[in-house]
Write a protein that binds this DNA or RNA. Structure first.
Lengths: 203, 203
DNA sequence: TCTTGATTTGACCATCTGGTCAAAGTGAGG
DNA sequence: CCTCACTTTGACCAGATGGTCAAATCAAGA
């Protein structure tokens, strides 16, 4: 129940998770079918259900695995570091995640769009506590005159939204820009955006 | 085919569109059922299909109606106006739309998340042209020294993402903040964010 | 009131979907 | 090569789903 034993189990469970991520991130929980997930994973449907008891179980396992790592970039924002460097580093890590894990980002977005029925508690407990803790840090930086005055909660929201946009709305971004990889320019732009936002005015 | 004739047709078609918006914006095209839409609209399923030929037809009609008005705030950004005032006005209008039409925002987000199969052409033609046109305007403002140097495309992306975030990720925002209406604070924050981004440095 | 077109619905159908199950296949240690 | 646990699958099922249709109901003008 806890850890996969054989190599074949590891391989197939990983294939199912990957396929589920692929399908769920596009169509959401209700819009995805076991047949498509099984096909994508290269397994028959009964075989898939040999490894996971239900469609919901795959989806839940994916969400849990995702939540483990999703907040890591924010956790790493260090109260002892240089404020602007820390916040811009957070922006950079978040944008990098959008580039390297777009399916995870879309899975999360889909879950939230549908009202977050599976992770509502996680959001209103763990996430809320983490953001509150970081908001205090940001307010301290502001009080020390290290950054310009700012609403820390909405600052974090704007970091989330601007960075995740390049994963979740990738199709739109590429339609507007015309196919070129947008991430380098996005990185420069967001760096500038939050640097100008946070740099304290000269006295 | 073109215009509804009787009052009863207007009423029922409107009820179906509203119900479809409610359901599709939550569950996406594949995840929504005719039964739920019919129930939400207060009609029987065959009766619903008397007004629209198929589920896809409702979805498509919704998307088309949405696209008509969705870009209006950007269209209204006036090349002849005061640059910072125009851009901040655009931010304000976009955030207001997130507050007043969250279902439309989520419907759009869902369609994009799924790869925009129904509106890909619209994005890569009409939207692309509109953004390109406004990018030129922004670059002119920059050349005239009215705003700080900025990548106009990513500026627009960041306006879209930050404003739509309050509709699409409403559940998350409220989970983190704890139920208070976030829009007033969001408006102040975004005004500050883009004002600091765009205000030209003093020479 | 009668007629006629618009509206509504109960019953129905084919297909899809999540999930089950018994049986067959497979492979690694003895 | 035998065994036994692990793995895979074809056949199947019940319920959901998109959609059809003929019949019933309704509404408004003649």
């Amino acid at each position: 129940m806890s850890k996969p034993k054989t190599r074949i189990q590891q391989r197939n469970r990983a294939a199912i998770m990957s396929a589920g991520l692929e399908i769920f991130s596009q169509y959401g929980l209700r819009g995805s079918t076991l047949d498509r997930i099984a096909e994508t994973a290269g397994l028959s449907k009964p075989n898939l259900l040999y490894y996971f008891p239900s469609k919901d179980a795959i989806y839940t396992a994916l969400l849990e695995k995702l939540l483990e790592t999703w907040l890591d970039p924010l956790v790493k924002m260090d109260a002892e570091g240089d404020p602007i460097r820390e916040i811009l580093g957070y922006v950079r890590r978040k944008l990098t995640m959008s580039r390297d894990f777009p399916r995870e980002s879309r899975l999360f977005a889909n879950e939230i769009l549908q009202g977050a029925p599976h992770i509502e508690e996680h959001l209103s407990v763990d996430l809320r506590a983490l953001v509150a803790e970081k908001a205090v840090v940001i307010k301290k930086w502001e009080a020390a005159g290290k950054i310009a005055p700012v609403d820390p909660y909405h600052l974090i929201f704007s970091i989330w939204s601007t960075t995740q946009h390049y994963a979740d709305f990738d199709v739109q971004v590429r339609a507007v820009l015309g196919g070129d990889d947008p991430f380098d320019d996005a990185m420069n732009y967001l760096d500038t955006l939050f640097r100008r936002m946070l740099t304290p005015p000269k006295p």
